[in-house]
Simulated scan of single mutants.
Amino acid sequence: MELVVENLEKDFGDKHVLSGADFVFEQGKIYGLLGRNGAGKTTLFNCLGGEMQADRGSMKLVQGHSSRDLQPEDVGYVYALPILPEFLTGYEFIRFYIDVNQAAIADRGDDIDALFDLMSIEESDRHKLIKHYSHGMKNKLQMLLFLLMKPPVILLDEPLTSLDVIVALEMKKLLREMKDEHVLIFSTHILQLAADLCDELVVLHRGKLTCVSAEVLKQPDFEQQVIELLSEVDADESGSGEEDADAGDN
């Protein structure tokens, strides 16, 4: 399976945030999405996830000789700031989520405790209100939803940056285990994390997507080479205008 993005464009007024972005993301790989603040990473994720309408272009899922337009239900989105019902306990939320989506959940929906075990969520935490969960716990709860729904495409917006070392290692292990069945795109500012976790790095620069070659990743100075690429910004792109156009982007 492939996620094929072709000529994707998104404008905010006279600012071209996505300018004919093209890329083929393959199942079985974790892609690291890199870009400066305001480059359009969140805009790209919002277009892929159906939360924002692209102005032009297409996003398709391709399997062999068949293809279809990407739908919102094809995409799981791990937000940098998890959006969860904090008035419920973790257990209540997962029970409710399973009940609502029972028709779409093929397996793993019967034993909720086994799901929490899989995510290394302690038994004492399962019946706490989500508002008392740490950021890492909330991210685990988000990931648990994707283990249930198994969307073909999973977008991860800075999911590891605020986690402690143990939880981050657990999340990286889980992502590596999941990649064979999904297209995983991981947005981060941390180059070393991207190089450690991801199979390929993709740079969003001047509205277009460019793959960083495997040869560059193997070189000891790869971080400097990526930084130099991201620094090649015209004077009119380095001001505050693009940040305003792509408000809230990372």
Rank of each mutant, 00 (worst) to 15 (best):
M1Q: 08
V4Q: 13
E6F: 07
D14V: 02
K15W: 10
H16G: 00
A21P: 11
A21C: 01
Q27F: 10
L34D: 06
G40S: 12
K41T: 07
T42F: 02
F45H: 09
G49V: 12
G50S: 08
G50F: 08
D55P: 10
G64H: 07
S66K: 15
S66N: 06
S67Q: 12
D69M: 03
L70G: 06
D74G: 10
Y77M: 12
E86T: 14
F87V: 15
F87M: 14
L88C: 06
T89P: 01
G90F: 03
I94P: 12
I94N: 00
F96V: 11
A103H: 09
A103R: 14
D107A: 11
G109F: 02
D110N: 04
I112Q: 02
D113R: 13
A114M: 05
S124D: 00
D125A: 06
L129Y: 02
H132N: 15
L141H: 10
L141A: 06
M143S: 01
M149P: 07
K150Y: 04
P152V: 09
V153L: 06
L156H: 00
L163K: 08
V167Y: 04
L169M: 11
K173A: 03
K173S: 09
K179P: 00
H182V: 00
V183G: 11
L184V: 02
I185W: 09
I185H: 03
H189K: 05
D199H: 11
E200V: 02
L201R: 09
V202F: 07
V203I: 14
F222G: 11
Q224T: 13
V226R: 15
I227Q: 15
I227D: 09
E228H: 04
A245V: 00
A247P: 04
D249N: 13
